[in-house]
């Protein structure tokens, strides 16, 4: 018999109040709002938390013994070559480090293998001076309209895997992870630390007034 939502949430609440890890099952998503709130209230009951001394020591050891490659400067990384970084803290991290050292002025253009133009709506549906989130198959993009022209950038932040959102009050794309903004054309704003530009997505307007995005 399927678990009822109230039993589902009680199972999770009961575990949280016993200090247990969140063990979620398929179907728990139907009560996601209640589960997230339960986690917050369980935390509030405990008050502000500090790391357990054993965990702090373990973390310190990991930071102390992190492979030196993980701490490389751009110069050292270039000298050592990307291949040497593969065994560092993680290939993805190492490559990310290199990307951080090379904030590009313009984002790369996304050209998916076997890409095809996909209809994402009529031009009239796109407000002038605004950006709208569209999905062209697996490609998520913000399509920005200026007059009868359109441009598009990836809906994912260029630094962390976070989905952007359109802040209409500022006419900017906002990254929830960095609390930073990008222009509709994808350039990073602010000088706290440079972020690479957003990837560019191919977009066009057909003779029939339809907007199409190159997706896959």
């Amino acid at each position: 018999m399927a678990e009822t939502p109230e039993n589902r949430v009680e199972r999770i609440v009961s575990g949280l109040l016993r200090g247990r890890r969140l063990k979620l099952r398929g179907g728990d998503a139907e009560a996601k709002d209640a589960i997230i709130m339960a986690a917050r209230l369980a935390a509030a009951r405990q008050g502000p938390q500090r790391m357990n001394p054993t965990f702090r020591q373990r973390l310190a050891r990991e930071l102390e013994t992190a492979p030196r490659e993980g701490w490389l400067t751009r110069r050292a990384a270039l000298v050592a070559g990307v291949g040497a970084l593969a065994g560092a803290v993680g290939g993805g991290l190492a490559v990310r480090g290199l990307q951080e050292a090379h904030p590009s002025a313009a984002g790369r253009v996304i050209r998916p293998t076997n890409g095809q133009w996909m209809d994402v709506g009529a031009l009239a549906d796109f407000p002038p001076g605004g950006a709208r989130l569209v999905k062209a198959g697996s490609v998520g993009a913000f399509v920005y309209r200026s007059g009868d022209q359109v441009s598009a950038v990836s809906s994912m932040c260029s630094d962390l895997p976070c989905e952007l959102w359109w802040d209409g009050s500022k006419s900017l794309l906002a990254c929830p992870c960095h609390n930073r903004n990008f222009t509709p054309q994808g350039s990073s704003i602010g000088d706290q630390y440079p972020l690479p530009s957003l990837d560019i997505v191919d977009v066009r307007v057909t003779a029939a007034g339809r907007v199409e995005v190159l997706g896959v």
């Binding site: 949280l16 200090g19 247990r20 890890r21 969140l22 997230i36 339960a38 986690a39 917050r40 209230l41 369980a42 935390a43 509030a44 405990q46 502000p48 938390q49 790391m51 357990n52 965990f55 973390l59 990991e62 930071l63 992190a66 993980g70 701490w71 490389l72 400067t73 803290v89 993680g90 991290l93 190492a94 990310r96 480090g97 951080e100």
Partner: peptide, 27 residues
């Protein structure tokens, strides 16, 4: 911790943050 409400998950996630941030910390 204030968002996951339990120590085990909070430790795992904090560890992930530390490892991801290592390249930055040394700059």
């Amino acid at each position: 911790y204030a968002r996951v409400g339990n120590r085990a998950d909070a430790e795992d996630l904090t560890q992930q943050v530390a490892l991801k941030a290592i390249p930055r910390l040394r700059q």
